[in-house]
Simulated scan of single mutants.
Amino acid sequence: MNRVSGKCPVVFALDVIGDKWSLVILRDMLFRGKRTYGDFLKSHEKISTNILADRLEKLDAAGLIAKVPTRANSPRKAYELTAKGADMLPVILEMIAWSAKYDSYPDGTALIAGAPDDLLHRIKTDRDGLMADLRAALR
């Protein structure tokens, strides 16, 4: 049986996480421990409320995050990464490494703001250990 592919893998990924705000939300959850709507609104990038609500809904529908109650019988919700969302960690680390390599002044000094030097160093020298540490922190 000859199987016809539905989508290119790159197109599939872009359909799910192919906009700035979805990646910022995932970054904030993976690296900054953000979990609530209010936490995401405080991001340096200043996401608007309508865009934030839309992206949280899309990430939830795609299975990368899940709404959870902040405490029993509370109407307030928080968001947590699913296993599918946590699997975005290597992708985002690669984006950070790529940006650190190419977003620099002519003398090689990094322009990147926001990525701690120790993170950039560990991406270069101990990527596997860094991944293990970050995954353990997500549990």
Rank of each mutant, 00 (worst) to 15 (best):
W21G: 07
M1F: 00
N2M: 07
A72N: 11
N50C: 10
A97G: 15
P9Y: 00
I47N: 14
P116H: 08
F40D: 11
D103I: 12
N73P: 05
L93W: 02
K67Y: 02
N73I: 00
A72T: 12
T70I: 15
A132V: 02
I123D: 02
V16P: 08
S48V: 13
G129Y: 01
T109P: 10
I17F: 04
V68N: 07
G85A: 04
R35T: 10
P116Q: 04
K20A: 14
K42L: 11
V11F: 03
L23T: 11
A72F: 05
D118T: 03
N50H: 12
F12V: 09
R35A: 12
D60R: 15
P90Y: 00
A136M: 01
L23W: 02
G63M: 07
E57A: 10
R3M: 07
G38R: 14
E45K: 10
R76T: 05
K84G: 06
V16A: 11
D126I: 01
K20H: 13
Y102P: 03
K101H: 05
R35I: 01
I17W: 06
W98M: 06
G85W: 02
G6I: 12
G63L: 05
K101Y: 01
A100F: 02
S48T: 15
S43L: 09
K34T: 06
D60F: 01
L59N: 04
D15K: 10
W21I: 13
G18F: 01
S99T: 13
N73M: 09
L41H: 05
L111D: 12
D87K: 12
M1S: 09
T109Q: 14
V4F: 06
G108I: 13
S48L: 09
I123W: 00
A72W: 02
D128L: 02
D54M: 12
K84Y: 02
T36I: 04
N50W: 08
G85D: 05
L93K: 04
L30I: 02
A110K: 10
G129V: 04
R139Y: 01
M131F: 00
K7S: 11
M95A: 12
P75C: 04
K84N: 11
V91T: 15
L134M: 14
D128W: 00
R27S: 11
A78G: 11
K46L: 08
R127W: 00
L120D: 02
S48Q: 14
D118C: 00
T36N: 04
K67W: 03
I112K: 12
D133M: 03
M88P: 05
P106C: 06
H121M: 03
A13T: 09
R76A: 08
D117A: 13
G18W: 05
P75K: 09
L111S: 14
A86S: 13
L93D: 04
L138Y: 03
R55G: 06
L56H: 07
L81V: 13
R76D: 08
Y105T: 14
M131D: 00
K20L: 13
L119D: 03
L52T: 11
Y105F: 14
L81E: 15
R122K: 11
R76Q: 09
I123Y: 01
